[in-house]
Computed example of a mutant assay.
Amino acid sequence: MRLFLTGIGVVLLLAGCGGVKNFGSSLKYDIMAEYYLEQQTYTQGASSFRRILDEDPGNAKAHYYYGRMVLAEKQYGEALSHLQQAALGRPESGDCLFWLGVAYGKNNNPAKERASYIRVLQLDPNHVGALVYLGHNLLKAGEHEKSLARYQQALDLNPHHAQALYNRAFILRKLGRSPEERIAWLLYLDSYPAGKFANLAADRLNTLENYSYRNHNLGGRVVTLTDVGFVPFKDELLDYTRESLDIVGTILSEMRQGTLQIEVYQKNDNKLAKKRALALRSYLCKKFPQLGAARRIEVSWFDVPESRVVLKKRLTIDESVRFVVTGADEKRYIKAEKNKKT
Score class of each variant (00 low, 15 high):
residue 7 G to A: 10
residue 11 V to W: 02
residue 13 L to V: 01
residue 13 L to R: 00
residue 13 L to N: 01
residue 14 L to G: 06
residue 18 G to I: 09
residue 20 V to D: 05
residue 20 V to E: 03
residue 24 G to W: 04
residue 25 S to I: 08
residue 27 L to E: 13
residue 32 M to Q: 03
residue 35 Y to H: 10
residue 37 L to F: 04
residue 37 L to V: 09
residue 42 Y to P: 02
residue 42 Y to W: 13
residue 49 F to N: 02
residue 49 F to Q: 02
residue 49 F to L: 07
residue 51 R to A: 04
residue 53 L to K: 06
residue 55 E to Y: 03
residue 58 G to D: 15
residue 59 N to A: 10
residue 60 A to I: 09
residue 64 Y to P: 08
residue 65 Y to S: 03
residue 67 G to K: 14
residue 69 M to N: 04
residue 70 V to N: 11
residue 71 L to Q: 11
residue 75 Q to V: 02
residue 81 S to M: 07
residue 81 S to Y: 05
residue 82 H to N: 15
residue 82 H to Q: 15
residue 87 A to Q: 05
residue 89 G to R: 07
residue 90 R to E: 05
residue 90 R to Q: 09
residue 97 L to Q: 05
residue 99 W to E: 11
residue 99 W to C: 06
residue 101 G to K: 06
residue 101 G to Y: 02
residue 106 K to W: 09
residue 106 K to Q: 11
residue 107 N to I: 05
residue 108 N to K: 15
residue 110 P to R: 09
residue 114 R to V: 08
residue 115 A to N: 03
residue 117 Y to F: 13
residue 117 Y to N: 10
residue 121 L to Y: 01
residue 127 H to D: 02
residue 131 L to S: 00
residue 133 Y to D: 06
residue 134 L to H: 06
residue 139 L to D: 05
residue 141 A to F: 05
residue 143 E to W: 07
residue 145 E to T: 12
residue 145 E to I: 09
residue 150 R to A: 09
residue 152 Q to I: 12
residue 159 P to I: 06
residue 161 H to N: 07
residue 168 R to M: 01
residue 171 I to W: 01
residue 174 K to G: 04
residue 174 K to L: 15
residue 174 K to T: 14
residue 176 G to E: 14
residue 178 S to K: 05
residue 181 E to R: 10
residue 183 I to V: 11
residue 183 I to Y: 09
residue 185 W to R: 04
residue 186 L to I: 12
residue 186 L to Q: 14
residue 197 F to Y: 11
residue 199 N to A: 07
residue 199 N to H: 11
residue 202 A to T: 12
residue 202 A to P: 06
residue 202 A to S: 14
residue 204 R to I: 03
residue 205 L to Y: 04
residue 206 N to K: 00
residue 207 T to H: 12
residue 208 L to K: 08
residue 208 L to M: 09
residue 209 E to N: 14
residue 210 N to F: 10
residue 210 N to K: 15
residue 212 S to I: 10
residue 215 N to M: 13
residue 216 H to S: 13
residue 218 L to N: 05
residue 220 G to K: 01
residue 221 R to T: 05
residue 228 V to P: 04
residue 228 V to I: 14
residue 229 G to T: 01
residue 231 V to T: 14
residue 240 Y to T: 07
residue 241 T to M: 11
residue 241 T to V: 11
residue 248 V to D: 00
residue 249 G to I: 03
residue 251 I to Q: 13
residue 253 S to I: 14
residue 254 E to N: 15
residue 257 Q to I: 03
residue 257 Q to M: 04
residue 258 G to T: 08
residue 258 G to M: 12
residue 261 Q to A: 13
residue 266 Q to P: 03
residue 268 N to S: 15
residue 271 K to I: 01
residue 274 K to E: 08
residue 277 A to Y: 07
residue 279 A to D: 10
residue 280 L to R: 12
residue 282 S to M: 08
residue 282 S to A: 13
residue 286 K to R: 12
residue 289 P to Q: 07
residue 291 L to D: 10
residue 300 S to W: 00
residue 302 F to P: 02
residue 305 P to L: 11
residue 306 E to S: 14
residue 307 S to Q: 15
residue 308 R to C: 01
residue 308 R to V: 04
residue 310 V to N: 08
residue 311 L to I: 08
residue 312 K to Q: 12
residue 316 T to D: 07
residue 318 D to W: 04
residue 319 E to M: 00
residue 323 F to T: 05
residue 331 K to D: 13
residue 331 K to F: 11
residue 336 A to P: 04
residue 338 K to N: 00
residue 339 N to H: 06
residue 340 K to R: 00
residue 340 K to E: 03
